[in-house]
Write a protein that binds this DNA or RNA. Structure first.
Lengths: 123, 123
DNA sequence: GAATTAACTCTACAAATGTAGAATAAAAAA
DNA sequence: TTTTTTATTCTACATTTGTAGAGTTAATTC
């Protein structure tokens, strides 16, 4: 099951903080902050969906993510690729490189990354 | 406003076919095909959202997309980048290159694409 | 220890989404 | 021209999502 947008935001915070109490999560929100109960509802739903768990500390809980950001993200990108590019990652890559405006420096970096990948493949 | 998942599927078909009558759209679906009324509802919603328009032909309509796939897609990717990578396209690119398993050939292609982009930037 | 606060659960409710039946109208087939 | 098919609109309804009040309980502060 997927996270909704509002839930994804909570995840973002959790990923950044690694673990957090309700209070920390609320702080992480910009004004206007949502009601505590709103965040509580979202957390509960995320727990049901097995995206979040917690450790009990007194009467409150320290929440933490159950899925890695990279894994979650992978699924997203793969979904996009499947959806929009008939499963062709290279088509996606090409599109991405032309449409996103990466700076010269970023492009050079990317090239390096690709070279590393290529080395790995060739082994 | 954004398209929902089901609506996105209709869009996919429309993008592929460029324009289509109800019948064509239904054919494009794999089994089990949705009810005609379902697709009709989706189309109507998409028309409201200004993603689709149509030309009338007799008693039926030829639907066509109002937004280009590439534009729609850009927004998606940019959303992803913003959401997950603090707006850093290069971070995304790096992630993408390492996590998606592109073949050797695809990586080479991608390198070429990057070179072309680099040439453009240098001018 | 009484009052305040923080975190949680329960309940609720409006909007969006996925899905489709019933009714209608027009076109095509018999 | 009667029947059948097709496309559309209207209505409907369950589920999911966004948001939060009310109430409860435990911890903290006076």
């Amino acid at each position: 099951m997927q996270l909704s947008n509002a839930e994804e935001q909570v995840m973002e915070h959790l990923w950044k903080m690694e673990k957090a109490f309700m209070k920390d999560l609320l702080e992480a929100y910009p004004e206007p902050k949502p009601a505590t109960t709103t965040v509580a509802t979202l957390l509960k739903r995320m727990i049901d969906k097995k995206f979040v768990a917690y450790n009990e500390f007194g009467n409150s809980r320290e929440y933490y993510p159950l899925v890695k950001k990279s894994d979650y993200f992978s699924k997203h990108v793969n979904g996009l690729i499947k959806n929009f590019f008939d499963n062709s990652a290279s088509q996606f890559a090409s599109f991405f490189t032309t449409e996103t405006n990466l700076s010269e420096k970023e492009l050079e970096e990317l090239k390096k990354i690709i070279d590393v990948q290529l080395q790995k493949k060739k082994k």
